[in-house]
Amino acid sequence: MPKQKTHKGTKKRFRLSAGGKAMHRSAGTSHLAARMSQKRKRKLRGTTVTDDAFAGVIRKMLAGNSY
């Protein structure tokens, strides 16, 4: 039987935490930050947990790997 391949788009956007939760970068952080307030930029730092509705799908697309 062939192995399940990792979905490359998902690999670039998500990673799994030690507990198996899918983590992602906040939207709107790549550019055009000069017009944002400092409070808004501060809140967008780091990674956040993805909604539970998508976590199972993301875990399946990553084939159990965390990148």
Rank of each mutant, 00 (worst) to 15 (best):
T48L: 12
H31K: 15
I58Y: 02
T6I: 15
A63P: 01
G56A: 04
G28Q: 04
D52T: 08
Q38W: 09
T6E: 02
K5H: 05
G64N: 00
A33S: 10
K11L: 14
M36R: 15
A33E: 07
G19S: 14
L16A: 04
S37I: 02
K60Y: 02
G28C: 03
D51A: 15
N65A: 11
D51W: 09
K41A: 08
G9Q: 08
S26A: 08
A18H: 11
R13P: 04
M23W: 06
G46Q: 08
A34P: 00
G46I: 12
T10R: 07
G56M: 02
K12R: 15
G20S: 11
S17L: 12
D52K: 14
T29H: 02
L44P: 02
S17M: 13
A27R: 13
K12Q: 13
R25A: 07
S30W: 13
G9H: 05
K12W: 05
G64D: 01
S26H: 12
N65V: 11
F54H: 10
R15A: 11
I58A: 03
G28P: 03
R59C: 02
K12F: 07
R15E: 14
K60D: 05
L62W: 02
I58Q: 02
T10P: 00
K11C: 05
K39C: 02
K21V: 06
V57P: 00
S30G: 00
K39D: 11
H24Y: 05
M23N: 04
H7Q: 09
K39W: 06
R42H: 09
D51T: 09
L44I: 04
R25G: 02
R15S: 14
K60E: 07
A27Y: 06
A55F: 00
